[in-house]
Amino acid sequence: MSQLEVEDLEVYYETEEGPAQAVDGVSFELEEGENLGIVGESGCGKTTLAKAIIGILPDAGYINNGSINFKGDDLTEMSGPERRRLKWEEISMIAQSAMNSLDPVYTIREQIVEAIETHRPGTGRVESDEIVTEMFELVGLDPERADDYPHQFSGGMRQRAMIAMALALEPSLMLADEPTTALDVIMQDQILKRMGSIQEEINSSMLVITHDVSVVAETCDRVIVMYAGKIAEEGPVEEIFNRPYHPYTIGLKRAFPNIRKSSQDLLSIAGYPPELVDPPQGCRFAARCPMATDKCREEEPEAHYENGLRSYCHYADEIDTELRPYADDSDTWSQTAAATDGGVEE
């Protein structure tokens, strides 16, 4: 049994126009000690997915269908207190903006100690302080600064304090939502490196949510590419990067410049993701896909399994045999851009 099993999950948001299907029928598994990346553009549902797992959906959001099994228990059927117990102790979250996640009126130490004492009643102050010191050292912060307030820390330090807090109870699953997006590259590199070594030490698994394909390439074992609330493709990181079957994955990968390459044709995916209140039938990527046919616009694609990849594209097998050079050519995509230019979003 996997540590985390998400099955057919649907998370909707209540809007004036009707429910927006932010996450729509997503299934995946996460093994113990594994790093799974979730990539996609803004609005593809990746953050909503994380929030649903840890149980902090905003008021308008609700789980419409599906299950989230964590170590055999369905989180969607748990009571509030049960879920709160799991939070921090078993599942912790590193949010994108540490400034908003730390309470400005308490010192960092008070916040970490509070989490420890809530979840492990009976832990003495001395022991809690030891954990704080240990965690600070682990993330590369001076333990003496634990008595500072969040505003006394720089952005990078706050992010590290946030990670220290997320690690304090040695959770078995960490959800990292754009953990380093707000940071400079050098700080990002140091934090990712530390997260990796800490993770090895406490053998936790991690769900890394990011728009940055290169962060995923470096930190994850497996990747899920999401588009408009659905999984487009999922599989081992090497396969996703070297031989993806879904046109969206190909496009997304090619939209990122690589510092190691001197000349490269960047590719732009024309158009915008669809409205999630009334999503189009068929493949959700069809409107932006240079290879789309009538079948794509009418029928929803089934999963295509090959090489450890799960790809939701009608033409996955043809991409692998004939269409790949075409899909990999930036001209292919710019022609689609020219064709759809008249249909700009209003």
């Binding site: 990078g156 590199d189 140091q190």
Partner: peptide, 21 residues
């Protein structure tokens, strides 16, 4: 430059840990 992540899982890089901020 060493700190810049590379969007290619096959490529490793030398990480230089820089002290301080």
């Amino acid at each position: 430059i060493n700190a810049v992540p590379v969007p290619d899982p096959g490529v490793g890089r030398d990480r230089v840990e820089l002290q301080g901020e």
